[in-house]
Simulated scan of single mutants.
Amino acid sequence: MADTPDNSMVAQSRRLSVEERLSQLEEEQAQLRQELASLAGELRLPGMYLAVDAAGTSALMDAETVQEVVRLVELEPLPGAPAHVAGTFVYRGSPAIVVDLAALLGVKREASLDAHLVVCGGGARTVAVLVDRVRDLVESPVLVDGTPDGTSPLPWDASGLMAGLCRTPEGVRPLLRTAAVLVGPEAP
């Protein structure tokens, strides 16, 4: 049965509602993590986190949302797309939208040929996050309160992309709010 315009609008409305709720839950989760960190000395986050570099900073992404990491491929531009949408490519037979993490942070740059696409799934569409480099996997990082040096906030913090800060063996890194990266203005 083909989608009628009414079915398509209902599905899109439902998806937007689910994406909005997911974003709200991530915000609440970030607040609860900060509260736990202030109450409990040392709080280890369960699971694995992918360390990525973008816009001159290393950050963590929840590895549970990651399907695969691939090298940057040629992207097809999407006319009229928001500035942070770098384009699209075919991933395993389906279209994938590419979100440039640096552009979300307001950093304009041409992606290196050595850049990576972190392909994330679980939503209504496949989204790949364009990063400069994938560093490693971090198991159970320690959630910390405040900024790395205790002074000014990171650019990630002002962007709404940061769920908190984590201490890893390599130093303090921002923890990305995955929904804030994957759910953004709709691409055409």
Rank of each mutant, 00 (worst) to 15 (best):
A2P: 11
T4S: 15
M9C: 11
M9Q: 14
A11K: 15
S13P: 05
R15S: 13
S17A: 15
E20P: 00
S23F: 06
S23L: 09
Q24T: 12
L25I: 03
Q29Y: 10
Q31Y: 04
R33K: 06
E35Y: 04
S38C: 05
S38N: 07
L39C: 06
L39N: 05
A40R: 13
G41S: 11
E42A: 10
R44T: 06
G47R: 00
M48H: 08
Y49L: 06
Y49P: 09
L50G: 11
A51C: 09
V52G: 04
D53Y: 07
A55L: 05
A55S: 12
G56D: 12
G56L: 04
T57L: 09
S58D: 11
A59M: 13
M61L: 15
D62M: 03
T65A: 09
Q67A: 15
E68C: 07
E68Q: 12
V69M: 04
V70T: 14
R71M: 14
L72W: 01
E74A: 10
L75G: 10
L75W: 01
P77F: 02
L78A: 09
P79S: 08
P79Y: 00
G80W: 02
H84L: 13
V85T: 11
A86C: 10
A86G: 12
G87S: 09
V90R: 01
G93D: 06
P95K: 03
V98R: 05
D100N: 04
D100C: 00
L101F: 00
L101D: 05
A102E: 11
K108C: 10
K108F: 11
E110Y: 12
D114L: 08
D114N: 11
V119G: 07
V119R: 03
C120E: 06
G123A: 12
A124P: 12
A124R: 13
R125L: 13
R125V: 14
R125Q: 15
V127N: 04
A128W: 00
A128S: 15
V129F: 03
L130R: 03
D132C: 06
D136S: 05
V138Y: 01
E139G: 10
E139N: 12
E139D: 13
E139S: 15
P141A: 02
G146R: 03
D149H: 01
G150F: 05
G150C: 06
T151F: 11
P153E: 13
L154V: 08
D157P: 07
G160A: 06
G160S: 09
L161G: 09
L161H: 05
M162Y: 05
R167G: 09
P169A: 05
E170G: 03
V172I: 11
P174W: 02
P174Q: 02
L175T: 00
L175K: 04
L175G: 05
T178I: 11
L182H: 02
L182D: 03
P185A: 15
P185E: 15
A187S: 13
